[in-house]
């Protein structure tokens, strides 16, 4: 991690003042979103991450932007695109487009991809051994990759700890890395169980005009975070239904992602497909 500059110290001081103002006004503040790193320091972090290479000669930093878990800078150049946590200065994402093997034959198996991904994480001191691994082969048409995920669950509860590494299926090189981890507190038991969450999601879909037979494709209990930083326990329900059957019998199927607050039972449609 780079040594804090005068500018970042000023940023941190400003953040503390904002935090105090927030507390004084009765509003909480998400400490993980406090900006403590400057754009220049974000670039330094990326340079340290890819130490010894010329990949960062032409990079520029933009942001910070509000992400789902953290506030981040985007550092972009001809050879890479990276994301840096604006609070900690850690590189939380990077893409090396040059490592994509275009038009080649798939020659890397899942075992070799897994070895490459683990070596990448070890080289950057990113802990993965306490997480549950999974691997998926993705055919992109002219290219292909293995997406390796390390996630953590507590029973059926999905915790906010996930690491993604993509390995090209032709070159065997790491194309991308994403660190989607964030500190959290034990959420306790949900007040709304799975059947009640599913019923609430169907009800909100009915209220929104979905009148076909609703299929529940998945239901996950997850720890997530509101924009304010407040930790939330939510059910994410993936549902689908035929929205139209055309004259010849062709079926048009709609998909919905419904979020149900596992404390209050309040449900809302958050995405459609």
């Amino acid at each position: 991690m780079p040594v804090p500059s005068r500018r970042s110290m000023l940023l941190a001081a400003a953040a503390v003042l904002l935090a105090l103002a927030g507390v004084a006004s009765g509003r909480g503040i998400d400490e993980t979103r406090v900006i403590a790193v400057s754009r220049e320091e974000a670039i330094d972090s990326v340079r340290a991450f890819v130490a010894g290479t010329a990949l960062t000669d032409d990079v520029v930093a933009e942001g910070p932007y509000d992400g789902a878990l953290v506030r981040f800078y985007k550092v972009t150049g001809h050879h890479l695109m990276a994301r840096v946590d604006a609070n900690t200065g850690s590189v939380v994402g990077v893409v090396f487009l040059e490592n994509i093997g275009q038009g080649g034959k798939v020659s890397v198996d899942s075992e070799r991809a897994s070895v490459a991904a683990k070596a990448f994480l070890d080289d950057h001191s990113i802990g993965w051994r306490h997480l549950e691994p999974s691997i998926e082969f993705i055919d992109h048409g002219e290219t292909a990759e293995y997406l390796l995920q390390w996630t953590r669950r507590d029973g059926d509860l999905v915790l906010p700890e996930a690491i993604y590494v993509s390995v090209d299926a032709v070159t065997g090189k790491v194309i991308s890395f994403a660190d989607m981890r964030r500190p959290f507190e034990a959420p306790g038991e949900p007040s709304v169980d799975r059947p009640a969450a599913i019923a609430a999601s169907v009800e909100v879909l009915r209220g929104a005009g979905v009148d076909g037979e609703v299929a529940i494709d998945a239901a996950e209990l997850r720890v997530e975070f509101a924009e304010s930083g407040d930790q939330r326990l939510v059910w994410k329900i993936r549902a689908s239904a035929v929205v139209e059957r055309l004259q010849q019998g062709q079926e048009i199927v709609g998909h919905w992602l419904v979020e149900v607050d596992a404390r209050s039972g309040q449900a809302k449609i958050v995405a459609r497909g």
Binding site: Y65, A68, V95, L97, I138, G141, S176, E224
Partner: peptide, 22 residues
């Protein structure tokens, strides 16, 4: 590729966009 990663960082999930085909 880049925009699928954006979906992940902004929304917390790839929401299917990682399965692009080009």
């Amino acid at each position: 590729y880049y925009s699928a990663e954006d979906v992940l960082f902004y929304s917390g999930s790839y929401h299917g966009y990682k399965q692009y085909s080009v």
